[in-house]
Design a binder for these strands. Structure first.
Length: 276
DNA sequence: GGCCAGGAAAAAG
DNA sequence: CTTTTTCATGGC
C-alpha cells in the first residue's frame, strides 16, 4: 500500500493489505463508529474520519503523524502474508482477512479496555468505555478523549459499579490505583515478552489472555497468540481435537508462528468469528 | 429461564 | 498443581 499526505487528510491506495472494516472489526479496538461514509475511530485524544470508496481510502484527521503510526503503515504486510500463507492451516484465513492490519494502540488504553472485555460482549464493552471517556476524559468538542492516567486515578469504585461494569469494577479500580505514575508501563516496554506478560498478570483482572491482548495491541508484541474461545474453536477445527486448555493452544501456536504469531492470530480469529 | 459474551479469581479436588 | 465454580450484566 502507498499513502500520500495532503493538507487535512491522508490518501491511501491499498494493495489488498488495508481494509478498514477488517482492521477495525477484528476485535482489536473498541472506540470506533460506523458511518455512512465509512468509519470514525478514536485513540487516546485523537480522532480520524475514514472515507472508504472503491479502493481509495481517505483519512481525515488533525493528527496525520499519529494515525500513520496507528495504522501501522510502515510495516510491510504483503511480506508478512506471503510467509503466513505458505502454512496450509492459514491459507484460507489470510485470504479472508487479507486487509487486516494490527493497530498501534496505546498500552494504558488497551490495558483498561481489555480488563473490561473479559467474559463480556463487544457492544457492552464499547458502551462502558464510552461512559468512562464522557465522564473523565477531556472534552475535545465533538467527542471525548480517553482519560489520562492522572484522570483515571480519580475515578472512584462506585463509578465503575454504577456504569454496570459488573464484577470487573474492583479489577479496574484496584489496577488503576496500583499503576503508580506510569513507570510500570514504561518498564514493561523494555522487557522481553515473557517478563512483560508476568508483570501484566500481577494486576487484578489480567490473566494470560488479557495480558496477551495488551501485549499485541498495546505494545505491538507480535510473538504472542491471544487464545480465547474463538481461537480454541479454530484450533480444534484445524486439528480435529477437543482441546480446551487455552495456555497449551497459545504455546503451540507461538511455537509454530514465532514472531508472526500475532498476525496469524488475527487472521484466524477474524475468519472464525465472521463465518459463525 | 438458561446460555453466552475475546476470562480471571477463588475454591475445591 | 489441575480442575471446577463463582463472579455482574444484558441480550437473546
Amino acid at each position: 500500500m502507498k499513502y500520500t499526505e495532503y493538507d487535512d487528510y491522508i490518501e491511501v491506495k491499498s494493495d489488498g493489505d488495508f481494509d478498514v472494516k477488517q482492521t477495525l472489526e477484528c476485535g482489536q479496538v473498541f472506540r470506533y463508529k460506523v458511518r455512512d461514509f465509512g468509519y470514525t475511530v478514536y485513540s487516546l485524544s485523537h480522532k480520524a474520519d475514514i472515507y472508504c470508496q472503491n479502493g481509495t481510502i481517505k483519512i481525515y484527521t488533525k493528527d496525520k503523524k499519529y494515525f500513520i503510526k496507528y495504522f501501522d503503515f510502515c510495516t510491510n504486510y504483503v511480506r508478512i502474508k506471503s510467509r503466513l500463507v505458505a502454512d496450509p492451516i492459514l491459507k484460507d484465513a489470510v485470504g479472508f482477512g487479507s486487509g487486516i492490519r494490527i493497530l498501534n494502540s496505546d498500552p494504558l488504553e488497551m490495558l483498561i479496555e481489555f480488563i473490561i472485555s473479559q467474559n463480556n460482549n463487544i457492544p457492552r464493552i464499547k458502551g462502558i468505555v464510552e461512559k468512562i471517556c464522557e465522564s473523565y476524559g477531556d472534552d475535545m468538542g465533538d467527542y471525548y478523549a480517553f482519560p489520562t492516567l492522572e484522570q483515571l486515578k480519580k475515578i472512584p469504585l462506585d463509578f465503575f459499579t454504577n456504569i454496570k461494569c459488573g464484577y470487573r469494577d474492583k479489577y479496574l479500580y484496584e489496577t488503576i490505583q496500583s499503576l503508580g505514575d506510569g513507570e510500570i508501563i514504561n518498564n514493561i516496554m523494555n522487557m522481553n515478552t515473557a517478563d512483560a506478560r508476568k508483570e501484566l498478570c500481577r494486576f487484578k483482572g489480567i490473566g494470560r489472555k488479557v495480558a496477551d491482548c495488551i501485549l499485541l495491541f498495546g505494545f505491538h508484541r507480535t510473538d504472542v497468540f491471544p487464545t480465547d474461545t474463538w481461537v480454541i474453536q479454530a484450533y480444534n477445527k484445524i486439528f480435529g481435537t477437543n482441546e480446551n486448555n487455552a495456555t497449551l493452544i497459545s504455546t503451540k501456536f507461538v511455537d509454530r508462528f514465532g514472531d508472526l504469531s500475532g498476525y496469524a492470530q488475527q487472521y484466524l480469529f477474524y475468519q472464525m468469528r465472521e463465518n459463525s
